[in-house]
Write a protein that binds this DNA or RNA. Structure first.
Lengths: 207, 207
DNA sequence: GGCCTAAATGGACTATAGTCCGTTTCTGTG
DNA sequence: CACAGAAACGGACTATAGTCCATTTAGGCC
């Protein structure tokens, strides 16, 4: 929602570094990178210490020794900060899906891959429930703007197209992911425990 | 989240009106009722005029000519205000389900009633999308605390128990309602239009 | 009508997300 | 190295949800 994108081509000018002529985004400045790491470390520390809720953005900025403006410029909003903290774990799951062993990775029948995805995603989710909830609900509609969501959605849509030929896979994938929202799973797990919650979404997704 | 409930029995005392001996909640005071109506009218007016987002609670209080404290005491929070405004429309749907003609009302096979419910609910939802979204997302977890949600959930759970004997109906009902969340439907409708969105959730719910 | 208690009131107060903009710091270039 | 412009900085500022409590008011009872 922020982070000057500037992806359009620019006109050639002698005062531009070569990098920009190749369409690459401008390299992050050294102080910016330093501050990004300071913030991530501080946020991680505070969240562990006081729980994800109960830590304000001011507190993160203070702990990181950074101004509020910097914090928001870098991460956009609270969801953005959470998403950044989840980035690495998220990427592990994404890589397992793209190139790991079946049934999560390629090679198994679509229905089995779907089941494996739900299981793996629920594991990921339950492992970071508070953080994911923050990344999804800090601002309205945040869930659907996060890059990761697009990934899960595409993956599910592709598998659905394969598993149920002729279905309207894109909106259906959207709908299938709805019960996997952190806020929903939080309630489900709180009310019925992990096993029944997991089984319910599994059943639903697999039809 | 508020609204002094006091549902426990009290000891008999001569200074208590008869009503309370029967377990009824204390009657709403006249000034309170007047203010409640003033607030609802003001909120309705403002929401129509400026859209549901874009009206602050301060604005509602001011328009109603009422203090902020009064507003919050009466409705708890922003979701509560939205829920109160939806109350009547909601009740119509609930009555149609409980005692209207089939297939929405009793008398049709469970699967057909389920389909009719999804259709009717989507109609209701699309008719008040912004308000419902506000009632569900103004505070985290608000959706699952609203009385109406419990109604839909129970209804779906009962029908599921009938339609798929042996399934774990309660958590499954929860999961089935997830794609009907206002925020989710807002995205779905925005991206694919009403027809495809409706069909996607229909498919999902009906397995 | 007057009294008494519980309920209701309202607006000042707090907490927090997010914005704005004048100032500071990088970094590529000559 | 010094310069210039771009990028980043940080903290004061705004907007808004929600709380608190001293004061006011309703309405049952005599």
């Amino acid at each position: 929602m922020n982070e000057s994108e500037s992806s359009g081509l620019r006109s050639v000018s002698s005062s531009e570094p070569l990098r920009t002529l190749l369409g690459e985004p401008p390299r992050e400045r050294a102080d910016a990178a330093r501050n990004r790491m300071k913030v991530l470390a501080a946020a991680d520390r505070l969240f562990r210490e006081k729980g994800v809720d109960g830590v304000s953005m001011d507190a993160v900025a203070a702990e990181a020794g950074v101004g509020k403006g910097t914090l928001f410029r870098r991460f956009g909003d609270k969801s953005g900060l959470a998403a950044a903290l989840l980035d690495e774990r998220e990427r592990e799951l994404q890589e397992a899906i793209l190139s790991g062993p079946p049934p999560l990775g390629p090679g198994a029948p679509a229905v089995e891959r779907l089941a494996a995805f739900v299981d793996a995603y629920v594991d990921y989710l339950l492992g970071h429930l508070d953080l994911v909830r923050m990344s999804e609900t800090a601002s309205p509609g945040a869930r659907y703007r996060i890059g990761a969501y697009r990934f899960w959605r595409l993956h599910v849509a592709v598998l659905l197209g394969e598993a149920r030929p002729g279905c309207d896979a894109d909106p259906l994938a959207h709908a299938l992911l709805a019960p996997l929202a952190a806020e929903h799973m939080t309630v489900l797990v709180g009310e019925y425990g992990r096993a029944r919650a997991r089984e319910a979404v599994r059943r639903l997704v697999l039809g």
